[in-house]
């Protein structure tokens, strides 16, 4: 005869020697209510070697009675989740202690810096005053260079030009973007306002699948997007250029 087999979770371990408690969930049909219910049953299960841990998913098998309340034994461990949990717990304890130590040390360093900056002479407001004075001068003494270096150290500044005056490249990129935007809006306005350009517009509408019923502003936005992203060859065919 086939032996009884169940799948279940280990819910208690370590309280009895070589014995664990396994919870088995099964569906049962209640005739009175005509409905399925989850029935849970706890078994005492033999575990030679005390391998199972709380949270493991195990298969249990019927044996001869091992004691007055124990007639099952662990056949296999399907998922060793309990063992995983234990390792995670151990890792977490070490990780958290290390992390907290690091964070407290960095916080103490910050605290020292803050304590120095409390004095009015070293606040950001007065540093700005100093910088303004230094910027007006064309030639700097050794003393003043030293002061500049101190300020740089305080605010973690490494590059010289980047902080006080934005770099030329960045500015030129911004200007370029602005110019392209202005050109785009001009071309779109021309397309919509001149009646002679209706053929071009209709072609574009066909390409981006726009109905006539859509609102004018939405149409305008869609056309703008299309012109911005479309390849140059397509635009040349339509007779447009940016």
């Amino acid at each position: 005869m086939a032996r009884l087999n169940f799948l279940g979770f280990v819910i208690s371990q370590g309280k009895m020697n070589k014995t664990i408690k396994v919870r088995v969930l099964q569906k049962k049909f209640d005739k009175k209510v005509q409905k399925h219910f989850l029935q849970k049953k706890d078994f005492l299960v033999h575990d030679e070697g005390n391998i199972c841990k709380e949270g493991d998913f195990v298969r249990i098998e019927q044996t001869r009675p091992l004691s007055s309340k124990k007639f099952f034994a662990v056949a296999e461990i399907r998922k060793n989740k309990g063992q995983q949990f234990l390792t995670y717990q151990k890792e977490a304890k070490i990780n958290v202690i290390n992390e907290e130590n690091d964070k407290i040390n960095s916080f103490k360093l910050k605290q020292e810096l803050n304590n120095k900056n409390v004095e009015l002479t070293e606040s950001f407001y007065n540093d700005l005053n100093k910088i303004k004075d230094l910027k007006l001068k064309k030639e700097l003494n050794d003393d003043e260079l030293k002061r500049i270096n101190e300020i740089k150290e305080k605010y973690n500044i490494t590059q010289e030009n980047n902080v006080f005056t934005p770099s030329v490249n960045e500015l030129s990129e911004k200007i370029n973007d602005l110019a392209i935007g202005i050109k785009l809006s001009n071309t779109v306005n021309k397309l919509f306002n001149d009646e002679s350009n209706n053929d071009k517009l209709n072609k574009i509408f066909e390409k981006i699948n726009v109905n006539e019923s859509t609102q004018k502003n939405i149409k305008k936005n869609l056309v703008r997007k299309y012109i911005k992203s479309a390849p140059i060859s397509e635009l040349e065919q339509l007779g447009l250029s940016i």
């Binding site: 907290e100 964070k103 407290i104 916080f107 910050k110 605290q111 803050n114 900056n117 409390v118 606040s123 950001f124 407001y125 700005l128 005053n129």
Partner: peptide, 30 residues
Amino acid sequence: PFIERLKLEIQEPNILSKGYNLNDVDRLLF
């Protein structure tokens, strides 16, 4: 230690309430 550190951190002198940053306020005032 986590909660204790947070409690120390809000006692620092250069923290402003209502989401203001000290450096930003200083820059504006200057």
